[in-house]
């Protein structure tokens, strides 16, 4: 019997909503890409169920919500989730600080790819608005991970009690 997936979909939608929530400009520069982080977590932990296609779908939704080039976030999130899938067994045994570093590297790669695509289409801008969220993601990762671990434990315990 499989674990229920819908709670994870709800969390993903919440993460997307957290990216759209109106914030003052200062806080905007420190808002991490919650969707990316949540996607990394679930691809890492339940790789058979959440992976490249989920990432692609949410990338498209982010593109629409942000009004950016259609396919931009879809591509970067697909790349991230592919990389996570390739090395998820190694990543899982990392202690928290190494995992945080790995997540930082992934989010940095995402920021770099986004900048690259922006540059190719003549919309490149630099500044705290671009790199602030990358550092914020590393800062927020332990918190996001703790919350997601709770949720996953619940979901997996529920499954074992039924089977």
């Amino acid at each position: 019997m499989k674990n229920a997936r819908w709670p994870v979909w709800c969390i993903l939608l919440l993460a997307l909503a957290a990216e759209l929530l109106p914030l003052p400009a200062v806080a905007q520069a420190l808002r991490p890409a919650f969707t990316t982080m949540v996607l990394i977590y679930w691809t890492l932990m339940w790789p058979g169920r959440f992976g490249i296609f989920t990432a692609f779908l949410f990338g498209l939704l982010i593109d629409i919500a942000h009004g950016s080039l259609l396919g931009q976030h879809a591509l970067t999130l697909s790349v991230i989730s592919y990389l996570v899938l390739r090395v998820h067994l190694q990543l899982r045994v990392f202690p928290l600080w190494q995992l945080t570093l790995a997540v930082f590297a992934l989010v940095f790669l995402e920021g770099f790819l986004l900048l690259w695509i922006d540059g190719a289409t003549g919309r490149a801008t630099l500044g705290p608005q671009r790199w602030g969220p990358v550092f914020a993601a590393a800062l927020f990762w332990p918190i996001v991970m703790a919350i997601m671990d709770r949720v996953r434990e619940r979901l997996e315990r529920r499954k074992s009690s039924f089977s």
């Binding site: 992976g51 490249i52 296609f53 990432a55 692609f56 990338g59 080039l69 259609l70 396919g71 931009q72 879809a74 591509l75 697909s78 790349v79 592919y82 899938l85 390739r86 695509i117 289409t121």
Partner: peptide, 19 residues
């Protein structure tokens, strides 16, 4: 994962180009 990645990456590149 390689095949899925190939599919989504191609699709998003096409989308970006067309958009």
């Amino acid at each position: 994962p390689g095949l899925a990645f190939f599919l989504t990456a191609t699709l998003s590149l096409v989308l970006m180009f067309v958009d």
